[in-house]
Amino acid sequence: MHNQPNSPTISPLRQRLIDDMNLRHFGHETQRNYLRDIGRLASFLGRSPDTASADDLRRFQIWQQSEGVPVPTMNSVVSALRFFFNTTVDRPDLARRLVRLAQPRKLPVVLSRQEVTRLLDATTCLKHQAALAVAYGSGLRVSEVASLKVADVDSERMLLRVERGKGGRGRNAMLSEDLLTLLRQWWQVGHRQGVMRRDGWLFPGINTLRPISTRQLHRVVVEAARKADVDKRVGLHTLRHSFATHLLEDGVDIRVIQVLLGHAKLNNTALYTKVATRTVRSVTSPLDRLGLFKMEESAPDS
């Protein structure tokens, strides 16, 4: 979201907020969400959000709750408003007044390896298959998959460069041999079709000067799951969850997985220990070691 500073349709306050987000390399989705959420406060107040008082913020949050706004949405608004008051208008006293609500953390939906195979095979074109394979094979977020450029594929070091991860943090993601083979096939097809350039997007959208949208990627994975008869609620993030869980089940150290996922906190990665069923099944219960309830072998027939 790189708006022109001198656009007559943008207020100075909005432009300052956009500049603050651009300076910190916030992604397009994050910027759009922050502008929307801060706009919610402005609509509630009926005036500019920088004129809010501590009591205004309290009334706003109480109103959201009374309107049945989901807890995750309310917390997203808190994140946007904290950035606005801390950074754009330099009112940290107001940022501290915003209450983040506790919410039960749901376990992520994880696909089996067989389900992932069926899903990838059910895609309708090579571009879509390659995009979903990146999400599963490298553990990328949907926005990170969409933002990849051809130049981000480092075949010498076998890495994918993620320039703008969550919070503007860049990192290197793993690039497997099979994934590299698939991406090379997609490059050959896309280049022949005239939709891919060496300095362009790895997964271009309908307008090849822009990347594929996250909404389109979501539609692709939902349709592939339907065709593959995967009876689970699936989004592109499901493939990222499956990547982490399958690595954990294969014995990869959880701190390595944390780095591959780009998690700032280990607690976020530790969630996958709760859904790594192969890890659970590989452990012998201490009850079994007592040997109290073993079935007696029947005597062979004479």
Rank of each mutant, 00 (worst) to 15 (best):
I38A: 00
E144Q: 05
H263G: 04
L261Q: 06
Q185R: 10
A173M: 02
R14Y: 11
G170V: 06
L247I: 03
H25W: 12
T279M: 12
H241L: 06
R24D: 06
L126M: 11
Q129Y: 06
S143L: 03
T277Y: 04
G291F: 08
M196C: 09
A52M: 11
L120T: 02
L160S: 00
G205W: 10
R47I: 06
D231S: 10
R184V: 06
Q61C: 02
L236Q: 00
A224P: 00
V275W: 04
K274N: 11
L57V: 06
P204C: 03
L140C: 01
F84H: 02
E296A: 07
A146H: 00
R289N: 03
V69H: 05
N267Q: 14
V275F: 05
D253S: 08
V77F: 03
L266G: 09
H128Y: 13
L248K: 00
Q193K: 09
N172V: 11
C125Q: 04
E29K: 08
I254P: 00
M21G: 01
L266S: 08
G235P: 04
R169E: 14
N6L: 15
F60P: 08
R281D: 15
I257T: 00
D20K: 04
V222K: 03
R157H: 12
A52R: 01
S242I: 01
L148C: 05
F203T: 00
R91Q: 03
R197I: 00
V134F: 02
R118Y: 10
D19S: 07
S147R: 03
R184L: 01
N267G: 15
N6R: 13
I10D: 01
Q103H: 09
L292C: 15
E223H: 10
Q114M: 15
